[in-house]
């Protein structure tokens, strides 16, 4: 019995010391991580706003659209929306920030938080990747699979079909959401 108690206490003490170490490091790094995340978010919002004025954040549809932010032009008229989208990738959930015109066409998009495979799925972080969807969503549909892309673009996303499907399904959901708003704020 004593041997079991001694073993349990030893493992408990080791775990306690390790937990303390993690807590100390977390205390030092958490504010820096929060600040980095906020800076990234602001930079992403600014990048996809395409020069339009960013309004107040509102709740999304509770599904793929986490939040929406109206965009207005210089005259104050509604010119589009920024949506915070959630997609399913190869490495789990992915966050996408995308801007849409009022008709539901993609103006710009950026993949932010993700755990995609380095060098493969992570290619979706590049600007050229999201450029493929620019202007799509209104008259021209957003592609469902890489087979819907021209051959040179299809080759670029080769090897990362799950990431591609995740991104396109989220962008389609965003486009549908914007269309459902019908130009309302």
């Amino acid at each position: 019995m004593t041997r079991y108690i001694k073993t349990a206490v030893t493992l408990f003490l080791i775990s306690a010391v390790c937990t303390l170490l993690c807590a100390i490091v977390n205390n030092m790094t958490a504010p820096v991580i929060a600040m980095n995340n906020e800076n990234d978010r602001v930079a992403a919002l600014s990048a996809v706003s395409t020069g339009l004025t960013i309004g107040e954040e509102m709740e999304g549809d509770g599904g793929a659209v986490g939040y929406s932010i109206p965009l207005t032009d210089d005259s104050g008229a509604l010119a589009g929306y920024i949506l915070g989208l959630t997609a399913n990738g190869y490495g789990g959930a992915m966050d996408i920030i995308a801007s849409y015109a009022v008709d539901g066409s993609v103006m710009a998009a950026k993949l932010t938080t993700n755990s995609e495979t380095p060098g493969i799925g992570k290619k979706a972080e590049n600007d050229w990747y999201m450029e493929m969807f620019k202007g799509l969503g209104a008259d021209s549909p957003i592609p469902v699979t890489k087979n819907d892309l021209p051959s040179e673009q299809s080759a670029l996303v080769s090897g990362a079909s799950v990431t591609f499907s995740g991104v396109t399904s989220a962008l389609r959901a965003g486009s549908d959401y914007v269309k459902s708003l019908g130009g309302a704020v």
Binding site: T29, A30, V32, N36, D40, G92, S115, T117, P118
Partner: peptide, 23 residues
């Protein structure tokens, strides 16, 4: 514990590498 430490430090101070290494 040491992996958690290195993960938190990289996330805070070299976020580009942290994002690149992913899972």
């Amino acid at each position: 514990s040491f992996v958690t430490v290195v993960e938190m430090v990289m996330h805070a101070f070299v976020p580009a590498i942290y994002e690149a290494l992913g899972v």
